[in-house]
Amino acid sequence: MLQFIVRRVLLLIPVLVGLTVIMFAIARILPGDPVALAAGPNATQAEIEALTVEYGLDQPVWVQYGHYVSGLLQGDLGTSLLTRRPVAADIAAYLPATLELVFAAMAIAVLLGIPLGLVTAVWRNRWPDYLSQVAAIGAISMPRFFLGLLLQLCFAMWLAWLPLGGRLPIIVIPPPSVTGFLTIDALIAGDWTAFTTALSHLAMPAIAMSLSPLATIMRMMRSSTIEVMQQDYVMTARALGLPRRQIITKYVARNAVSATLTVIGLYFGWLLGGTVLVETVFDWPGLGLYATKAIVSQDMMPVIGVALVIGLLFVLANLVIDLLYGVINPKVRYS
């Protein structure tokens, strides 16, 4: 088990090296002068050159890359040209917001998708199944930002149940930071007002992000459930008098979930990388918003940093999924 984890973590190294190389190459290929942009419209040529030297951008690209990697090993992700702050500090500030959003969306998708998949498999080719099929196609095909706008129109403008955007209004005092997730920090602090406020802000962006994975997980769970229900051991369980409910919720569900796990892992990475649009629509102060601003101003250090962190999280998420396989499928655990 430990050996497995170590091997998987070691596999991270080539992934991260590849990511940095690609990101560095892209940063050099892009046209324009980021230093000039950062220095502002009134900067003189001398000031721009001084800045270029200060950031080491006058040196050959492999020297820059070497500097970056040696800094990386000490936890230094470089400095943002725009904010003039260390990228690591910026990411530390924005990452929890994005993670909270992604985890909330994944929780909705998994907690609803798996039972719905089971139910539609059991009721297949009857009306709940057809209804869910239509809904799933709608959910997968609708762009997230458009869905976000629809939700805003409905729940913020017409019904006025939920706030339009943002994470926490200035008038609410944020709870002391423990996990960085406002909802959980508020619960830890026992601050009910902060919790409900944070939750009401989280709800719409999380729902907008969850629908596509929810639909996919549901369909995936449905098809693997149908497959599992045709297995011999299900026939044996029926023949020996196990109650139908127990067969489905215990024996079939566990076998069917393992096929769905892969999709869950992939979607986690997909959501992390795809928060940009939803964060923009809902003005959610996360990594996506941060990376967009950096890209627009050709500030490459934050872009590379964000890509690295997302890549790292994606690989870690899939490591967790692989470990979960072992929990669900004993055959994987022992071999």
Binding site: Q231, D232, Y233, M235, T236, A237, R238, A239, L240, G241, L242, Y251, R254, N255, S258, I328, N329, P330, K331
Partner: peptide, 21 residues
């Protein structure tokens, strides 16, 4: 009746036991 009046055994022992339990 299933299980306590009528028991059944099927052909392939590799597929008739649930692998996850």
């Amino acid at each position: 009746l299933r299980g306590n009046r009528i028991g059944m055994i099927f052909q392939d022992p590799t597929t008739n036991l649930n692998p996850a339990f």
